[in-house]
Amino acid sequence: MQPTTTLPQQGAMRSVWLISQFELTRLFLTKRGAVLLAAFAIVWFLILKYPVSYSVGILGNESFGDNITVFSSQLNLDYLLQWAYSEVAVYWLFAIFIFPFIAVLMTSDQTASDATRGTIRFLLLRTSRNQLLFGRFIGQLIIISILIALTMFAAFAMGVWREPGSALTAIPQLLLVASNLVLVCLPFIALMALFNSWIQSSKLSVVFTIILLPIVTGIISWLSGHISVLEHLLMAIPGVQLTDTVQMASFHYSSITIPLVQTAAYLGLAQFVLTRKAL
């Protein structure tokens, strides 16, 4: 039997899309995916039940408008008081620091286990390494975007339940939150794609990111104290713009350019490694 003929360009796009779609089933139809989703749901249930549901009280606290110390940075979060729903505001504060970790954990197995098991060899008879890399990346990005959307709408729904009248006013803030969260997660997902291509282990990819990145950041910061030009190396670390993004929550240079450039660079490196690697 011969397949329906497709143009090569259509074939490439179709392959990327098919691989991306398969990633969705990997999360939603497998045991490992179900465990990850359950852990995710518990964490967010606790966040939504306590800090987000008590958000009015938190934002109403007189000291909130003053400087709040998060990760040793002085954050100015006054703008959150202007938001339509305090639930969304508190959700944003949690999500921007939690979702990078979630992205690392949930996207840590893009090609690693398939390469170890040899399943990747069946796929590579039918798709190029580039299509596989980008298909898996896009699939993981869609998954993280869905999770961001679900949790954000849960926070929004809590706000609407309390005060239905401000729903429309909150829409620009929701778009801003969703876009910024996806942008924040992008380089972390791309970094997982790179580590997967390089070390072919999902566990080591997580360990490298969660343990090694803070150490590397610390070393660069220490060195830049002596040689200031080395400070630019921090631009290679994913999440370097987080404190700027959370203080402004608007589309500006650091919140868009830095993650996009990092993502492109990590994916470029992943493509370089994967296309040369013995699989």
């Binding site: 397949p3 329906t4 003929t5 497709t6 074939g11 179709r14 392959s15 098919l18 691989i19 398969f22 089933t25 990997r26 139809l29 497998t30 045991k31 490992r32 398939d114 098991r117 040899g118 399943t119 060899r121 069946f122 796929l123 008879l125 039918r126 798709t127």
Partner: peptide, 27 residues
């Protein structure tokens, strides 16, 4: 090709995986 020692993904049904391969071939 039948690569030596390559295994199918244990988490998915045979149908699910072979259908993906067929679709990647243009079916």
């Amino acid at each position: 090709a039948l690569p030596q020692d390559a295994q199918l993904d244990p988490r998915f049904a045979i149908k699910h995986q072979l259908e993906l391969y067929a679709k990647l071939q243009g079916f």
